[in-house]
Design a binder for these strands. Structure first.
Length: 113
DNA sequence: ATTATGACCTATT
DNA sequence: CAATAGGCCATAA
């Protein structure tokens, strides 16, 4: 049975929100935190992605920073993230940024999350 | 208890 | 436009 401890409510909401991001769309760290109920909690989202993206099979590549940039520092992971996004139809400008007006996912039915 | 961490965000220069 | 500074805050150790 479960040796895994129960996750905190905020953490669970963040996980649920990230799983809701559709193919071909992105959300920002701060946006996810805000929808999860902590408008200044962008760095929590970072930490959660670090510690749980594998175990929970999250679409981690659909999370970008507020400028529309891929924020991963590791070169290989960064390339992989851009590759995943491009394969879903997300286009990058030459400066490495995404047009958030076009690709940002804005959840409409917040009640369900 | 306290301190460190993290793929951030915003206002300011 | 780019760079910087300070704030941010839930978890892990």
């Amino acid at each position: 049975m479960g040796t895994e401890s129960k996750l905190q409510p905020f953490t669970e909401r963040v996980l649920r929100i990230i799983k809701e991001i559709p193919e071909g769309y992105v959300m920002t760290y701060g946006q996810i935190a805000a929808v999860a109920g902590s408008p200044r909690g962008a760095r929590q989202v970072v930490r959660i992605l670090h510690s749980m993206s594998k175990a929970h099979k999250l679409p981690w590549h659909r999370v970008v920073n507020a400028k529309g940039e891929v924020a991963v520092m590791d070169d290989e992971s960064r390339s992989l993230q851009m590759l995943y996004l491009e394969s879903e139809g997300v286009e990058f400008y030459r400066n490495g940024r995404i047009d958030l007006d076009q690709y940002r996912y804005v959840p409409e039915d917040l009640d369900r999350l």
